[in-house]
């Protein structure tokens, strides 16, 4: 915590009557930049040309881009991403707190959980959940619920458990790093005020840990969105599976992969923007001025065109 700002309203230094004359100099020419830009553009054009000449029926993509099944798949993908991340975040915070607890029982349980779920591939976990009926024939929650495992374990539930529980293990490590990043003085200060352990965590530590937790969590969301394509393997229909289905019936399988890729790119791009604003929110109080929003940045850039400032790379 560095000392910032001024003490108490310092007297403003006298300003010179007339501003100094601005320096007019020939800027350094960066010929390497022009050259590398030309090479990059050339390479890009070559790749685009190669694809356009390939045996790919590009017209099929716009035909199916807003197909009902595709849109439905996009919705399912988003739903699965949101729900599995919710399980992951809640589970992750819980596991991280357990892991850092003084109680050896809870911290060992958390350690074991993380060890298991991080140590096995998520695709394998999905298949295990799918076939768990071999172990448990019935699910029996006493008077509340009783059913055969196979009818209880719907594709959605399989996908949610597989993705969510796996994610919780990764989120636990992210949350743990975040909780540890908060200065110990913060815990001491809140304890000295008489705050309980859980209040200290909830009111003081977690909000500050969010600054460290949010950026990698944004990555996890984007990762999760892409990983949902794996659940096609356990009979859950989402974007990738619908795209495959359409590809098989319409005779344009590869084209549908491009279509799915485009949709995934659109969704991850939107998520990246959301992440930026979330990070900005949790930065409040840590820096004196918030970073500009992309809109503000664009506005500033547009206004400054024509009078470039020094040092613009």
């Amino acid at each position: 915590m560095k000392k910032t700002g001024t003490a108490d309203q310092p007297p403003t230094p006298p300003t010179p009557a007339a501003g100094p004359e601005a320096i007019k100099a020939i800027p350094v020419r960066h010929y390497g930049r022009y050259l590398s830009a030309a090479i990059a553009l050339g390479a890009f054009a070559a790749i685009v040309y190669a694809f356009s000449q390939g045996k790919i029926n590009w017209d099929a993509i716009p035909d199916y881009f807003f197909d009902d099944r595709i849109l439905n798949g996009v919705g399912q993908t988003l739903l699965l991403t949101v729900l599995s991340m919710a399980i992951g975040v809640v589970g992750g915070i819980l596991l991280a707190v357990m892991r850092l607890s003084k109680n050896p029982v809870t911290s060992s349980i958390a350690w074991f959980y993380i060890w298991f779920f991080r140590g096995t591939p998520v695709l394998v976990q999905l298949f295990v959940w799918f076939n768990l009926g071999l172990v448990f024939e019935y699910i029996n929650l006493g008077p509340v619920y009783k059913d055969e495992w196979s009818s209880f374990m719907t594709p959605l539930l399989t996908a949610l458990l597989g993705l969510g529980l796996n994610e919780a293990a990764y989120m636990a490590e992210i949350c743990r790093a975040g909780l540890l990043s908060v200065d110990e003085g913060q815990t001491e200060a809140s304890q000295a005020l008489g705050m309980s352990h859980s209040k200290t965590l909830r009111r003081i530590v977690v909000p500050q840990a969010m600054r460290v937790i949010v950026p990698p969590t944004g990555n996890e969301v984007i990762n999760m969105l892409k990983t949902t394509s794996l659940v096609a393997a356990v009979q859950f229909s989402e974007l990738f599976r619908y795209a495959q289905d359409i590809g098989q019936t319409s005779g344009a399988p590869v084209e549908m992969y491009f279509l799915a890729a485009a949709w995934y790119l659109i969704m991850t791009s939107v998520l990246s923007v959301g992440q930026y604003y979330l990070e900005r929110y949790y930065a409040r109080g840590s820096s004196r001025t918030l970073p500009p929003t992309p809109l503000q940045k664009i506005r500033a850039n547009v206004l400054s065109v024509g009078r470039p400032k020094g040092g613009m790379a």
Binding site: M1, A189, G285
Partner: peptide
């Protein structure tokens, strides 16, 4: 117990060398 310790700390104010203000408030 932790809760009993916390109860007693309510009556004792503490000021730290590094201030330890809550930066998000």
């Amino acid at each position: 117990k932790d809760s009993e310790v916390a109860l007693k700390r309510r009556d004792i104010g503490m000021v730290f060398q590094r201030f330890n203000l809550f930066p998000h408030m």
